[in-house]
Amino acid sequence: MIIGILAIVYRIHGLVDVARNTHQKRVTSSNRINAVLLFIFLIAGVAATIWMSFSWFDLYHLPVASEHGKSTDSIFWITMAVTLVVFFITQILLFFFSFRYRYKEKRDAFYYPENNRLEIVWTIVPAIVLSLLIFGGLKAWNNLMDDPPEQSEVVEILGYQFAWRTRYPGNDNQLGAYDYRMIDAENVFGMDFRDRASFDDFSPREVHLPKGKPVLFKIRARDVLHSVFAPHFRLKMDAVPGMPTSFWFIPNKTTEEMRVETGNPDFNYEIACAELCGRGHFSMRLLVVVEEPEDYEKWKSEQKSWLSNNPDYLSKVPEDLKELALLKTGLDKQ
């Protein structure tokens, strides 16, 4: 139906054109209309860009809560300033030229095939600007990707379909060995209890982190790719089966401080998955709590080791280490 009507309208309009002989003309009035529309689009576009950027600022601007995040954010905003200048200049020229130099019968276009000096200028100027931007970026990148400080708090994060699990090294500050063949329904990490370092490892439901101290995330995946993404910490690193990765950073605002800063009493740090991993990709949420170092230490000392919560696995501990395991997990007192 609609197509039929369209066809009829179209046909009539075509016949009218033939009657008026408009198609014989070099350009019609639509040339002017299009030129004006391009100009209006420019004005409206610039206005809309400015309006969105200002009025939504609080929505899209995530407060930053890590030391390196401050420097990557500043590079982000410097780049934003530079590119916005270029953006406005080039878009304005594009639409303005289109409008200004629309077809006029009496004017001739200017035969201007080349100008090597101009080409050189606009090769070198972007090169310089880009080098400056890269320089800042690479400096931050190298600092960030450097080896973590010795005394970093280590947290292991394991991604699987479709959740995260975390493991802390416990009092000995050493994560126990693991083997993916030892994974089962309980032992999601595949902890190897032949390694004494694993006896005091604990696995809380949420990540707790001390404010102001370096933290090292040791990241693993056990089935498909995942990616640890903590937006407020400006942190992202893929979790790769068979290849452990890591990311270190210094959280610099406690959860409480963020609640005050954002004015949201329910604020929580979150970790999301940023690498497509299947059906539940959009639901891999892990909570992170940043607290003052004293509170963190207190929390840590209250945690019970994984083995003490799952005493069945004592059977996997070799005979000669059993006593040590009982001692470390506190199971000997029961």
Binding site: T90, L94, Y101, Y103, A109, P126, L130
Partner: peptide
Amino acid sequence: IAIPSAVKVFNYLTTLWRGNIVF
């Protein structure tokens, strides 16, 4: 690689400049 891309844009803009544009 951003540099040659930028060069292309500048060349397009200069082509439009003082043209006699038919839309």
